[in-house]
Write a protein that binds this DNA or RNA. Structure first.
Lengths: 359, 359
DNA sequence: CTTGACATGGCAAACGTTTGCCGTTACAAT
DNA sequence: ATTGTAACGGCAAACGTTTGCCATGTCAAG
């Protein structure tokens, strides 16, 4: 039922070849007048190119696959949006595959992607993984987005966790805190190591002594933040500030402080990491370092398009930095929370602001 | 580079026609022995059908488009997952289009979908909209998912908000509350009207008098819940329970109660709606009615596949019911919060549990 | 022995594009 | 007048499938 190139060409009194060239802006010259005639005719007739047929012929589909390990995650959708917004400008399309870390489904999905002859892939993984899946698609350009693992590899986007942790500790030190405790992530995650390193770096920068008594390892969950903070607050010389490696653990630390009869931030200052929605809704709201998901998505799309169009073999590894968002849990000296602080978490503006790109 | 049907056929010593029929399970008979030979050969040679070519020939792509107005929303990803999980079982694929309610981008996206000759569309919209976009794709099977608008239309999935609100008020009445206030959503949304109706229905059921003094209209945001609750609590005969039409306003109500020196739930019980993550993280955790996004996604996919495969003209409208999740803000008599309550919000199990389907 | 039905398999057209190759014309340079 | 170059346009092949149609062989019923 849809109008084809043949019909369009016949209506314009030209061959399909000419019509095709007029529409695609081919390098082959075509008379400007006829070109315009074809274009306007295409408009009026409502011609829409059959992308399936085009894909079959050109073996390029202007489609990239996005493989994510969980679309139900506070971070993934933002990354996806970053990717899609960037792709859109270049008239690329994306197909999202949600694997849920199920290898069987993943390999089936990859087969599907191959069958659809997508042009490239962005792989959004929160965990490290073997390279098995990658091999299958090795012939296609491939870009990684790693939220919790840093990769020195080329063709990858990751986060400068060290820098982010420095930001947090800097802030606390600047407020005058000298005993700053740290609740880290579990072992085996690069993010845990890097944020710990950032914590240490910042301490050194401020000539503060690193003490193992002020560091505990959590598991990203609220309870672990709660337990760790309770431990710190029972010490003879309790810390005046706690930096947690994510917002959930920071919230746990706040609850523990409150249970101990301490006021946040007057008695204990707390800083989190990630800038999840909860950080803007809790009481007090949580000072935190943003995880620049949107920018990461954009950067990965940019990398992939470079790979596709400039025929470069590989792109550099991109590392993105978050920024500090100061809220009540660290700063505001008055105890009472101005109501205006409870703003919507993610407005379009917010997506882009607060995130800076490096590399 | 990938192995084609021709190569496979030649290797098996048959024609492409036979190979095709062996692989696709065509109705045309093919000798069982040769069929097996072809299948195993396909396996060893790593043959993957070119879905582009197949799509060109058959004009069916086993792909459905998912058009969402915002992928950055606490609800959309869960709906998407419901859709994709269901589609996956039937070897369908999906393409997600994020419109951000930008009509220009939306129409471009729809053109793209047409060009890709997708088989059908699931439209996930949180707001009501004109049918303009729909017309363009009218030739394709189309299913709506409406989270905040109910549609009597066929080919649509929506929520039984009336029922959900009843659930909440029932719960409060059962706990002995007789003055139950209501913070509603803004006008113009079906969800607001339906939840209000449910509130009234439940009151009637319990022989409780409806009073306009106990109802205020919020705007879904935390502040409005805060302001509304403060208003209620200043009344000479303050309510002992507050039902808010979403979790954010419920949280605002909790904050207002706490500011007024009242304990939740001992002095004021609060129930929300939606079961967003915050409801499981706040202090106290919030009793709420689930918005069964995952089930809605599944149901819409089922509807669409019915449309595609059974050649039915239309499917019935499906209405899905949420369930009540009792947490501390309404029930727990003791003031202190057991730490175990702070569990991960969305585990795979959770996706399916707590949601019941009707119709 | 004839006929019809069925199992099996191949030929080739078709799906709607893009593009290499060739032909024609116009025009400038020699 | 001849040649070279560029602009313009058409023909037809190709991309990898699926499928209508036809051909052959087999076998059972008449």
């Amino acid at each position: 039922m849809p109008v084809t190139l043949h019909e369009l060409a016949r209506a314009a009194g030209v061959s399909v070849a000419t019509a095709s060239r007029a529409l695609t802006g081919s390098s082959h010259p075509v008379n400007e007048a006829t070109k315009q005639r074809i274009l306007t005719l295409a408009e009026t007739m409502g011609y829409k190119p059959n992308l399936i047929a085009r894909g079959l012929r050109t073996e390029r589909t202007a489609t990239v696959g996005i493989i994510v390990d969980s679309i139900v995650s506070p971070f993934t959708p933002l990354i996806i949006r970053g990717i899609q917004d960037y792709l859109q400008e270049y008239h690329y399309f994306s197909v999202i595959i949600n694997t849920d870390r199920d290898p069987a489904f993943e390999s089936r999905a990859i087969d599907d992607l191959i069958g659809r002859s997508i042009d490239g892939v962005v792989h959004v993984e929160s965990r490290m993984r073997g390279a098995n899946a990658v091999l299958d698609l090795a012939s296609k350009p491939y870009v990684f987005v790693h939220r919790l693992f840093s990769r020195d590899d080329r063709n990858s986007v990751s986060v400068d966790d060290n820098y982010g942790a420095c930001l947090a500790v800097d802030h606390l030190a600047q407020l005058g805190h000298r005993r700053i405790a740290y609740i880290g992530g579990p072992g085996g995650w690069d993010a845990s190591a890097n944020r710990l390193a950032g914590y240490k770096d910042a301490l050194a920068k401020w000539d503060l002594e690193y003490s193992a008594d002020l560091v505990r390892e959590g598991n990203w969950e609220l309870q672990s933040g709660f337990a760790s903070a309770r431990y710190f607050l029972r010490e003879t010389q309790r810390p005046t500030a706690i930096f947690a490696a994510n917002d959930l653990m920071a919230l746990g630390a706040i609850y523990a402080s409150q249970d101990a009869g301490l006021h946040v931030p007057d008695d204990v200052a707390v800083v989190g990491y990630d800038d999840r929605e909860i950080a803007a809704l809790s009481r007090p709201t949580i000072t935190t370092v943003t995880l620049p998901c949107y920018s990461m998505g954009q950067a990965s799309a940019r990398l992939l398009l470079d790979l596709l169009n400039k025929n470069t073999e590989s792109s550099p590894a991109v590392v993105i930095r978050g920024t500090l968002i100061v809220r009540e849990s660290s700063g505001d000296p008055a105890g009472r929370i101005p109501l205006e602080h409870y703003r919507s978490h993610t407005t379009p503006q917010r997506l882009l602001a607060d995130e800076s790109v490096k590399g």
